[in-house]
């Protein structure tokens, strides 16, 4: 009975959405065709939003990676929300798993020597790679989120190789807090300097150079550290490994 209802609802969703998307061309779009309306100045412009980003993004933000320009600068507020969501997840998981902290750990077999040695060896390189990804977020594909995830994966490797390993909670929390405060602090400085929250107040420098694009690298480093420590925290809480 429940299955039948579910199947009918799923088919209904498929048909309704399918018909709606049948009206939308796939790939056959000219981004210049859309004309946006500025509600504050109450005027119609000939530009369209994505075309404007592609044309002016490099000049307006200093970042050659337009997706980064959109994520961190044009729609930086969304990214602040996104960072908050991840922070919430790590806080929530920490709160939910709290009760089980005093539980006795199950006996876990040690990993073999190859895994232990290799993970020790790789640990530094993986962290370095993650740092590379988020430091170059404004120049190449990637950015704070993938970089942070890579860093967290290096810790995950240690968890797998050494059953007794656990990350220092206090330092994780401090890293998380400081990175978050940096992000909000950059936003508030922008508010003070130019009366726009998250305003890109630093000089852009030359495009394609590492020190360019104003506050974007700073924000992405903060995001990278934050995502890395938060994902590690989530992994740690779910493993439930405590002494």
């Amino acid at each position: 009975m429940k299955r039948a209802v579910a199947a009918i609802l799923a088919i209904l969703i498929f048909i309704v959405l399918g018909l709606a998307f049948a009206k939308i061309p796939f790939g056959n779009v000219n981004l210049e065709d859309y004309h946006y309306y500025n509600p504050i100045q109450d005027k119609q412009t000939s530009d369209s939003v994505p075309a404007h980003y592609l044309k002016e993004g490099k000049n307006e933000t200093g970042s050659t990676n337009i997706v980064t320009a959109v994520v961190v600068d044009y729609r930086g507020f969304d990214t602040l929300g996104e960072v908050t969501v991840l922070f919430l997840a790590s806080t929530g998981v920490g709160s939910v798993m709290y009760i089980f902290e005093k539980e006795k750990r199950r006996k876990v077999r040690r990993a073999n020597a190859v895994v232990e040695t290799a993970s020790k060896l790789l640990f530094g390189f993986i962290i370095l790679f993650g740092a590379y990804i988020f430091v170059h977020g404004h120049l190449t594909p990637g950015g704070g989120f993938p970089g942070g995830a890579v860093i967290a994966s290096s810790f995950l490797l240690l968890y797998l190789a050494y059953p007794k390993f656990h990350a220092e909670h206090k330092s994780l929390n401090v890293a998380e807090s400081l990175a978050g405060l940096t992000f909000v602090g950059v936003g508030l400085i922008g508010l003070l300097v130019a009366s726009y929250f998250l305003y890109n107040f630093l000089p852009f420098g030359l495009p394609t150079y590492l020190f360019s694009a104003g506050v974007i690298p700073i924000i992405y480093v903060a995001v990278g550290v934050k995502v890395g420590s938060e994902l590690t925290g989530i992994v740690d809480a779910m493993m439930g490994v405590r002494e």
Binding site: Y36, Y37, N38, P39, I40, Q41, V49, H52, Y53, E60, D73, Y74, R75, G76, F77, D78, G190, A194, Y196, F197, L198, Y199, N200
Partner: peptide, 15 residues
Amino acid sequence: IFDIIGGFQPPLGIV
């Protein structure tokens, strides 16, 4: 009140 975030006029930026 329209509070522009990031210094970009809407709809380019968030408001």
